[in-house]
Design a protein around this nucleic acid. Structure first.
Length: 364
DNA sequence: GAGACGTGGCT
DNA sequence: TAGCCAAGTCT
């Protein structure tokens, strides 16, 4: 495959391509908050936030995050609670736990300076091949490829690469291509230009080829196959899971919440006590009975739950939660965290449990 | 290497 | 609507 790329690059006008692409980028680039300077820390934070996440979603999170944690030192010294709270609603929460862990590593072992060595930076938690290349090129102007979904889409069209970009090994083909194509003078602009082009012109479904600054270099455009590329195999459907959750409250209006495990789904976030339930159980227990039993077993809480108060659906990338929600008045719940409504806003909740809380607040 | 890991927006 | 997507990484 790599030799195929070499073949395609034989008659490719690399220098004009670089020049036209970079010139377009410098003229048309969006004014984004992480482009105000080249601070490696801010570049790093932005790259982690942007993983699998839209620019428009990231902008307000980035601004608030940098306001709260302006430096490596600030983030290294912060409480994880506060860090997760700043990430609340962004998803893929291990990203920020890894980021804080890596920042501590940089503070302790690299004197607070983000390493500019490919092997050293790769050792940091949460820094994979893409983020490595992005930080090295954008913050340090080192000619390393930063191959994300945009770059695979753009390059697959430019060079008509028909490999399935959903396969992990395919990324290497694009990295090889970029090593050949990347500007040695301005790798930062080159890499960002490729991503910018993918985000604004060379889009997935209907690319605006007539506006493209490098369409004359694009094999897919010349062959009229830009909409057939890139090739990407389909992912399978998320699996539905039946859940039940209880909003427990007491006489004083306190609520009782639980901190999730430190690994796996939504790690270290807070939630209302809940349980997965069987809807196909041979004993045919009702969901409410299963939840009552589970509250007793898991949290030692004995409670008379309300009738079904509502249902929430929450769709993750790999599963679907259908949550039956109940309310319950308790005297106390020793194994759960008691909080006032005012205190609740200091705890980070996944969106699914924010929905549950809204249901509770809307009760009459 | 396939699956886990979130969320909200778009077609 | 159901599916796909958006600047991936870890296990």
């Amino acid at each position: 495959m790599v030799s195929q790329v070499q073949e395609k690059l034989k008659n490719f006008e690399i220098l004009p391509f670089q020049k036209e692409l970079i010139q377009w980028y410098k003229q048309e680039k969006r004014n984004l908050p992480w482009r105000k300077d080249q601070d490696p820390y801010k570049v790093w934070v932005s790259e982690i936030m942007l993983q699998q996440t839209r620019v428009d979603t990231v902008i307000p999170y980035f601004n608030q995050f940098i306001h709260k944690f302006p430096t490596i030192d600030a983030l290294a010294n912060a409480d994880e609670e506060d860090v997760l709270k700043a990430w609340e609603g962004l998803g893929y929460y291990s990203r920020v736990r890894n980021l804080q862990s890596a920042v501590k590593e940089v503070k302790e072992n690299y004197g607070g300076i983000v390493p500019n060595d490919p092997d050293e930076i790769s050792k940091l938690k949460g820094v994979g091949p893409y983020t490595k290349g992005a930080i090295l090129s954008i913050a340090y102007n080192i000619p390393e490829p930063a191959v994300d979904g945009n770059v695979m889409r753009v390059i697959s069209r430019i060079l008509t690469i028909w490999e399935d970009i959903a396969k992990p090994k395919t990324r290497k083909i694009f990295e090889e291509s970029i090593y050949q194509l990347i500007s040695q003078e301005d790798p930062s602009s080159f890499n960002q230009a490729l991503m910018e082009l993918g985000a604004t012109i060379c889009t997935p479904t209907s690319p605006s080829c007539l506006l493209c600054p490098v369409r004359e270099h694009c094999a897919a455009f010349h062959e009229g196959v830009q909409k057939e590329l890139p090739v990407k195999s389909k992912k399978k459907k998320p699996k539905a899971v039946q859940m039940a959750a209880a909003v427990l409250y007491d006489q004083e209006g306190n609520l009782y919440i639980h901190k999730r495990a430190s690994t796996g789904l939504l790690a270290n976030l807070w939630e209302f006590p809940n349980s997965e339930v069987q809807t196909t159980s041979p004993t045919l227990q009702s969901i409410r009975e299963q939840l009552t039993y589970s509250l007793e077993e898991e949290y030692g809480v004995t409670v008379q739950l309300s009738e079904l108060s509502g249902t929430i659906q929450h769709i993750f990338s790999h599963l679907i939660w259908n949550i039956s929600v109940y309310f319950g008045k308790v005297e106390a719940a020793p194994n759960l965290q008691r909080v006032t409504v005012a205190e609740l806003e200091r705890y980070a909740f996944p969106v699914s449990h924010q929905k549950i809380y809204k249901l509770f607040m809307a009760r009459d």
